[in-house]
Design a protein around this nucleic acid. Sequence first.
RNA 1: CGGGGCGUGGCGCAGUCCGGUAGCGCACCUGCUUUGGGAGCAGGGGGUCGCCAGUUCGAAUCUGGCCGCCCCGACCA
Length: 487
Amino acid sequence: MADDKALTPRSEDFSAWYNEVVLRAELADYSPVRGSMVIRPWGYAIWENMQRALDDMFKATGHENAYFPLLIPMSFIEREKEHVEGFKPELAVVTHAGGKELEEHLVIRPTSETVIYSMYAKWVQSYRDLPVLMNQWANVMRWELRTRLFLRTSEFLWQEGHTAHATEAEAEEETLLILDIYRRFMEEWIAMPPVTGLKSESERFAGAVRTYGLEAMMQDRKALQAGTSHMLGQNFSRQFGLTFQSEEGQEEYAWNTSWGVSTRLIGGLVMSHGDDRGIVVPPKLAPAQVVMLPIFRSDDDREAVFGACNRVAGALSEAGVRVRLDDRTHLSPGARFWEWERKGVPFRVEIGPKDLEKGQVVVARRVHGEGEDRKMFLPESEAIGRMPGLLDELQAHLLETARTRRERDSVRGGVESVEALGEALDDGAGFVYTGWSGDPAVEERVKEVTKATLRVIPSEEFRSGSAPERCLGGEPSKMEVVWARAY
RNA sequence: CGGGGCGUGGCGCAGUCCGGUAGCGCACCUGCUUUGGGAGCAGGGGGUCGCCAGUUCGAAUCUGGCCGCCCCGACCA
């Protein structure tokens, strides 16, 4: 870009835009170790808001937090066959400690099923000890060759829930409950409406019986797997001796579930709502929902302007709005406008000498509709009174916009061959709904020809009005599926 | 792991071909003037030129080795 103050426009190079906006909104930065990142205060505050909301939802449904260790004995990972095969290529292993090679190498957790279920085995004796409903907030490590800030780094932060149940039906119910919590969280908080459903065999979590996923469509129409919820069956309980005595006195294996979302959600937030000026943080997650921006010419103005700013900030805070006062005087107003827009703060309240004269304040919106003015000139009390409503409206607007975009860029029906799928994707389709026979060979061929993967077998409410008759290979369709190129 | 590119103040780069006291823009610091959409002027600080060895009176520049990073293709929350 000739003007290095501006971001590369999304239309020119989405991927360059993403990298720039993450760095320049001060969400994160590269660290000295390839593939790991530093999450900066602005980014971490968004994560903390996400954590709080999700944590409340987990607690409200009876889950408790705990913490399990970072290091896992290699032999644990190796216990479940599919699990080890899935994770082996991504493991980071501690081989030396205390100046000596360790007798048993330790894996830095890529996920914690193995340790957690080995502990559950110790704690659970009877059906009366079930269900066990735990969650942990932790970092995990999966060695990656190609990394991108938030979307794919070797180390990332997440939550992983792990539960144990007496019956298959209860475990299945738990898996779907969490899927619904994730879905509500993504819609209501991130304003990022996913398509939910079942993953195909090839995309299933290593060691699970079934994996459910949530797929969100980014502005470049690519799919982002935003969360997963796994029904683990008795695979892990058999390997770790997680048994209980049933009401009838029988020894039985418990049924497990595990589920997680990660800091990848921040990448999803950025790619869902960002524009060429920067990111847009949905009000419910914004570290600051309103920035107060004093503007003044002389020292005389200064006191009066700051007085008014503090007064308005106090009143907004009283009204439950998260406010931040930008009292930096060495930057011009323009410079400060751009900075907060880049960081995605929903509203700015500007107060200068002219406003004091007129008894008004300026409310500038980060996002405004066609024909809507960026700035509103309102009496102080009205600005304060209307702010909570404006925040709610923006939250709703972001969700609506994202949902409309998702459906606009989805193709339902009419695609009945692998070639047609490729053309649809090249023509700008994001999610393409087609029939599928259940044959993995079709997935392979689609991937080879179009680079798209089977994202999800959609839950009922996301399915098309009429079920497709043919699979892409021509054979009769057994189910509808969603294809997309994915992150 | 395969292909391509790059390592020079915090960031972006020039200088390397053709060896001769390290430079530009932005950022930073100080002062004054400024402040309603990325302020101006003046002064100033900061770099073992990725690392190691070699050639040379002299190396950012030439030679050899090593290391690291970024981008593009196969696996993944």
